[in-house]
C-alpha cells in the first residue's frame, strides 16, 4: 500500500477492483459503461453532470477523470466552473435548508 490514502496512479487501476469480486465488478463496469453512452442525454452532457457530482462527492479520482473528459468533450473552463458551483450550491443549500428544522425546534422550545 502506498504511503498516501490517495495516489494519482490508482485511477488507472480502477478496473482491478473486479479482481476481488469479479461478478459484481463486471456488473458494475458494464452498468457504468452503459450509463455514459449517448442516450436521452448525450455523453457530452453526462460528462458535465459527472464533473459536478465528482465535486459534490469530493472524489479526487472522479475530479481528475471528469475534468479531462468534460474539457475533451468541448465544455469551456467557465462552463465547467459553473457546474462546480451548481454542486456547491446544492451542497451548501442542503446544509442551509436544515436551518428550517433548527428554527422550528427553537420556536418549539422558546418562550
Amino acid at each position: 500500500m502506498s504511503e498516501h490514502y490517495y495516489n494519482k496512479k490508482d485511477l488507472a487501476k480502477f478496473s482491478k477492483v473486479a479482481d476481488f469480486q469479479k461478478n459484481l465488478g463486471d456488473k458494475f463496469f458494464d452498468y457504468y459503461g452503459e450509463v455514459f453512452k449517448d442516450s436521452e442525454l448525450t455523453a457530452r452532457e453526462k460528462a458535465l453532470i459527472a464533473l459536478a457530482v465528482s465535486h459534490a462527492v469530493q472524489c479526487p479520482y472522479c475530479i481528475d477523470a471528469y475534468s479531462s473528459d468534460a474539457f475533451e468533450k468541448g465544455w469551456s473552463e467557465a462552463q465547467m466552473m459553473e457546474a462546480v458551483h451548481v454542486a456547491c450550491a446544492i451542497r451548501g443549500g442542503a446544509s442551509l435548508v436544515h436551518g428550517v428544522q433548527m428554527m422550528e425546534k427553537v420556536k418549539e422550545i422558546a418562550m
Partner: peptide, 17 residues
C-alpha cells in the same frame, strides 16, 4: 484537432455540435 493534451472526442457527436 484538440487544443491540448488529449484525444478527439467522438467525430460524429462533435460534427453535430
Amino acid at each position: 484537432n484538440p487544443a491540448g493534451a488529449f484525444l478527439p472526442p467522438s467525430q460524429a457527436a462533435l460534427e453535430s455540435e
